[in-house]
């Protein structure tokens, strides 16, 4: 399922293909499903005993590109959608369906000394789809079209490399949760447009009123040579990451305390997310309608927001297991 999810394209604002896959996978396990005007997929699952209602949330969208202009000689000018560092873009393969393109810049031997020494910006780049004219390009591309990173899923040792692990990994955890039976009620929101301002989540959770919410995410992991420990954010194979605070929210302290206690009781490997930088849909969910008790659990992902993000299988399994234990113990939370 993670392979299918990551290899499907769904740049922010264009998540339908991802949503269709998720819907096909989970709808028969839900008491009700709904797609709202933002394109969020909201799945309701009645518990065997009722009682508490747990909300799990993951976003379907990924960072990518939107075409802003087609040049007279058939090249595509673009802007990034979501936070993408322009330094990683040069020579990247991108795609729109079966149409592939190469992100490029003026050839290095044509650059002046000054140009070579200057860092390039997004506006210097273009996508080359092999068209020789605007007319030829316009047969297959329009301004406003989305392109995603062209990257395949790879599993090697304990490492999984794919694009869009942030946050198809969260979607995969939610799908697994919906396929099981629970005593507690479960609501899973697969939301849109997280990468461009938590927009889907703001609409999705309105009116749901769960007892508590867990956002399941992919988060930064800078576990690489030369990075001091305090700048790593999370450790690869360090377990599921529990957030305390980020730029968008402060996790509910009681909820975090209960989550970590459940993890310890069940010997699930976990770590704190050691940074307050970044943010996720907890920022939108926690302040919805008078406030919702919210926490975030994340799978550490190296090289996040690129076409080659990488996670450790054990961290993913820890996250999945902890989520399941939380739902099992919902009445005590």
């Amino acid at each position: 399922m993670l392979r299918i999810l990551t290899e499907t394209d769904g740049v922010s604002g264009n998540e339908k293909a991802v949503r269709d896959i998720i819907f096909a996978e989970v709808s028969s396990f839900c008491s009700e499903t709904k797609i709202d005007s933002m394109g969020n997929l909201i799945c309701f699952k009645k518990g065997r005993k009722g009682g508490k209602t747990v909300l799990l949330s993951a976003h379907m969208d990924e960072v990518g590109f939107i075409i802003t202009k087609i040049t007279d000689d058939g090249f595509l000018k673009f802007e990034t959608v979501g936070g993408v560092d322009s330094k990683i873009l040069l020579s990247q393969m991108v795609r729109k369906g079966d149409l592939k393109g190469i992100i490029s810049l003026k050839a290095v031997h044509l650059l002046t000394k000054e140009e070579r020494e200057k860092a390039f910006s997004e506006s210097d780049l273009f996508i080359d789809i092999g068209a020789k004219s605007k007319e030829e390009a316009e047969k297959v591309v329009s301004v406003g079209d989305y392109f995603a990173f062209d990257s395949e899923y790879l599993s090697q040792r304990d490492m999984i490399k794919a694009k869009a692990l942030d946050d198809r990994v969260g979607c995969a955890v939610l799908i697994d949760a919906l396929k099981k039976e629970w005593d507690a009620n479960l609501i899973c929101t697969f939301v849109t447009q997280e990468e461009v301002g938590l927009r889907g989540a703001k609409a999705a959770v309105y009116g749901l009123k769960p007892d508590f919410a867990i956002v399941v995410e992919g988060t930064s992991c800078n576990n690489m040579p030369g990075i001091p420990e305090e700048k790593r954010v999370t450790n690869f194979d360090g377990g599921v990451a529990v957030s305390i605070m980020d730029m968008g929210s402060v996790a509910n302290r009681d909820l975090v305390s209960k989550i970590t206690a459940i993890a310890d009781e069940n010997k699930i490997n976990w770590q704190y997310k050691a940074s307050v930088k970044g943010g996720n849909d907890a920022g939108a969910i926690s302040i919805s309608e008078g406030g919702i008790k919210t926490a975030s659990l994340s799978v550490p992902c190296k090289y996040i927001h690129s076409g080659v993000s990488a996670m450790n299988k054990n961290d993913y399994l820890s996250c999945k297991e902890l989520i399941e234990k939380i739902i099992e113990n919902a009445e005590e939370i």
Binding site: S249, V250, S286, I287, S288, E289, G290, G291
Partner: peptide
């Protein structure tokens, strides 16, 4: 100090 988050949440229901 976090963009008035507590006030945002409170005013959603008060």
């Amino acid at each position: 100090k976090f963009a008035g988050r507590g006030l945002k949440a409170l005013l959603g229901g008060y």
